[in-house]
Design a protein around this nucleic acid. Structure first.
Length: 721
RNA sequence: GGCGAGGUAGCUCAGUUGGUUAGAGCGCAGGAUUCAUAACCCUGAGGUGAUGGGUUCAAUUCCCAUCCUCGCUACCA
């Protein structure tokens, strides 16, 4: 394989509206960092870019929530997230932000270039407009009653109570959050990226050229999108937060680039800023075919990085990604990680509990890195458990890796006067040679695995080399030889050979573990009194890393054990936090996006749920005709998971009502049940069946639905008031 | 419902272009040892490979159906 001239590595841009959890870390940042550290050790020309995604409507929304400005929100989260990454050893060359002038410029130019070439199309459509604020309303600036769950403060794009994706048109009683007025429909023009024009290119590029070397989950996902037929995608929005359209674009006033369009360009602007900082030229990294561009992301972002952004890049004359090694998701203690349900472990929390100097320091950063890599969801979803975390640390990092290095150093101090002993070549036996050979083999294996983005396997080889070291030492038993010194002084030479090899192996472990466990590698260097330069990858496999007679530091432990109480505390903390949340749903509002959030908005903390809706007068209430009905028949609706078709006896008539409760009740189990029905609701067709009314339901903290019905059976048709 | 990815030892996961006794780590059991953070080392037990069919001399690996999990999507008045 021809070696590329340079590498550009990107990790998904985190959305700066909240803290990020370990699922994000394991999904994109950690594998990217391992890869980058390896490339740097190889002395390759590599740039690792990332940064905060600071546009999109969720930011100003979060601002409203926190009672502050959008700028204040991003200024708050950007540095925290950056610091979190830093504490965990994620070694970006630049952690940029999309609110920077250079990004605005870059994104704006990108738009202009495509627009001028005729690569974008425009369409006019009706959208909600706030006449008082004189502004079109982005989906998230419209609130109303969720048609699904009745939650009053549902947003125009999604109801944060039930998680349902919405369009503003679906909201009942839409209200502008800017003025509180009812918005009106008004014609507006928007620019679109006609993805449908590029289906052939994508099919050829992804399916034919990369069908075999990209991960199957990635190719499968792309194929699914392409086969489903691609649609033009809006690249602009009516909003005042984001990258404004260039002044010279007709009709562009008051519009910004849609966040999904501007965010990936953030990779380019970050590269530019890095080039400015370092006096380099950014262009080859995005324009020269000899550059290997790799996007590390979570599976939720596959479509953006494999379909949409590549189309943009291609139209703009940039290079395309060589690979997009997307990870699946990481679950936590038996359940999906979820911001809204507060079932998560944030980087910030881990850092506070384990990495702060008082609690263990940076060695615990490596422990997290180790475990997350060991269970990386490379081919399917995986699961983080605190017990697993403890086991991985205690039985692998402590007992095998740390222990080998410790016993080598301790023995060297005891049996060799604290100096690197000489090697007596003439006395080397088969085992010695095999062990030396194993070091070289480990290096080659790790190298190959890393090049193939198989990080968990690669890391396993590192631990395995330490295991080989333990086995070697066990067979050589230098402590036994030491007891024979009195009658057999020549035994010292065997001791020397054993420890010489163990120490060289230790130095090799520093090099090989460096991409995965950078803090540990550094500490090994400290113990061996060698400079960090030794970590250059080319040194791996060498048996001459430490010179004979060199005196080394007294041993210090590389890792500490993690006690049962520590993980018990964490598990309790997790459960307590989750229980404290009110109004939890089991529907799709899990938002466990584990990477950049572009158009699909990580919603961050849950919505401000005012416990009581705004006051209404009696007449408003009296308009609703509520009656008790009895379910006569119930059947599943074809091709719909959530719908049941019910015949409800209302006394004066029996009518058809379609209700989205199929996930909660078996049809046969609810026949005969009494329910409360809104019977003067306008009819609505669902899946081709006309529904004449609505069944009232109550939702408990677990998201389970319950009927609202009379205590004792009463006549169908009885009024409710 | 459609599409995509998975369902392999108690746990976390590999692997097989179809071919003799299906692998690893952890955990567990037994043994050995004491240099080492009650650590290491050796040995062992554990899988009718989701289920049911089919193709084949031969299937865990190919095909079909069913069930389950996850993601995208439709559906929730």
């Amino acid at each position: 394989m021809k070696q590329p001239k340079r590498y550009l590595i990107t990790a998904a841009l985190p959305y700066a509206n909240g803290l990020k959890h370990i699922g994000h870390l394991a999904g994109a940042y950690l594998p990217a960092d391992i890869y980058v550290r390896y490339l740097r050790a190889q002395k390759r020309d590599v740039v690792f870019v990332c940064g905060s995604d600071e546009h999109g409507t969720a930011i100003p929304i979060q601002a409203t929530k926190e009672g502050t400005t959008a700028q204040a929100i991003i200024d708050k989260y950007h540095p925290i997230i950056e610091q979190n990454f830093n504490d965990l050893g994620i070694s970006f060359d630049i952690y940029h932000r999309t609110s920077s002038p250079i990004h605005h410029e870059t994104a704006s130019e990108f738009f202009t270039a495509l627009n001028n070439k005729g690569d974008l199309i425009t369409k006019e459509s009706e959208q909600y407009y706030d006449e008082q604020a004189q502004s079109f309303l982005a989906d998230r600036y419209i609130k109303g009653t969720c048609p699904n769950c009745g939650f009053q403060a549902a947003y125009g794009d999604q109801c944060e109570s039930c998680g349902k994706s919405l369009s503003p048109d679906e909201l009942i009683n839409p209200v502008s959050t800017l003025s509180g007025n009812t918005p009106v429909k008004k014609l507006t023009k928007h620019w679109y990226l006609p993805l449908d024009r590029h289906e052939d290119f994508l099919r050829k590029w992804i399916i034919e050229e990369h069908g075999n070397d990209w991960r199957s989950t990635v190719v499968g996902q792309c194929k699914s999108w392409i086969d489903g037929g691609l649609q033009p995608r809006a690249v602009t929005r009516d909003l005042d937060w984001g990258v404004a359209l260039p002044d010279d674009v007709e009709g562009g006033k008051g519009k910004v680039l849609y966040v999904w369009f501007d965010a990936p360009i953030g990779y380019i602007s970050a590269t530019k800023q890095w080039a400015l900082n370092t006096g380099k030229d950014w262009r080859p990294y995005w324009e020269d075919q000899d550059t290997k561009l790799i996007h590390f992301i979570g599976k939720d972002n596959i479509v953006f990085h494999c379909i949409i952004f590549p189309v943009m890049l291609q139209l703009h004359g940039n290079i395309l990604p060589t690979n997009v090694p997307a990870n699946e998701f990481m679950n936590l203690e038996g359940d999906k990680m979820s911001t809204s349900r507060n079932w998560k472990l944030e980087m910030e929390d881990y850092i506070n509990d384990f990495i702060k100097p008082a609690n263990g320091g940076s060695q615990l950063a490596d422990t997290l890195r180790y475990y997350l890599t060991a269970i990386a969801p490379e081919s399917k979803d995986s699961e983080f458990t605190w017990k697993g975390f403890q086991d991985a640390n205690n039985s692998e990092l402590v007992s095998i890796f740390g222990n080998f290095i410790n016993r080598a150093l301790v023995l060297m101090h005891k049996l060799c006067n604290g100096k690197v002993p000489p090697l007596h070549n003439e006395l080397l036996d088969e085992l010695d040679h095999a062990t030396i050979e194993a070091i070289q083999q480990s290096k080659e294996k790790i190298e190959q695995l890393l090049e193939d983005y198989k990080f968990r396997d690669a890391q396993f080889e590192v631990i395995n080399l330490a295991r080989i070291g333990n086995q070697y030492m066990q067979k050589k038993e230098p402590w036994i030889l030491a007891k024979q010194l009195a009658e057999n002084p020549a035994a010292q030479q065997l001791i020397n050979n054993c420890l010489h090899i163990c120490l060289q192996l230790t130095a090799n472990l520093a090099i090989l573990s460096n991409p995965f466990l950078p803090f540990t590698a550094k500490k090994i260097c400290y113990l061996l009194k060698v400079v960090d330069k030794i970590l250059d990858w080319e040194n791996a496999g060498s048996m001459k890393l430490l010179s004979v007679g060199y005196s080394l530091r007294a041993p210090e432990l590389l890792f500490r054990k993690i006690e049962d109480e520590e993980i018990t505390i964490q598990i309790e903390k997790l459960k307590a936090a989750a229980v404290n949340k009110e109004s939890i749903t089991t529907t799709s509002n899990t938002n466990n996006n584990q990477s950049v959030d572009t158009a699909t908005a990580i919603t961050g903390e849950s919505a401000d749920k005012s416990p009581v809706k705004p006051e209404i007068v009696f007449d408003d209430f009296a308009k609703i005709d509520l009656k008790v009905g009895t379910i006569v028949t119930a059947e599943k609706v074809e091709k719909a998971d959530k719908l049941l078709k019910l015949q409800v006896d209302l006394g004066f008539e029996t009518r058809t009502i379609v209700s989205g409760i199929a996930m909660h009740f078996a049809p046969e189990a609810i026949v005969g049940k009494q329910v409360t029905v809104v019977c003067n609701l306008a009819p609505r067709k669902m899946r081709g069946i006309e529904s004449n009314g609505m069944i009232l339901m109550a939702e408990d903290a677990n998201g389970k639905l319950h009927f609202i019905n009379p205590e004792d059976p009463i006549n169908p048709g009885s009024g409710v008031s």
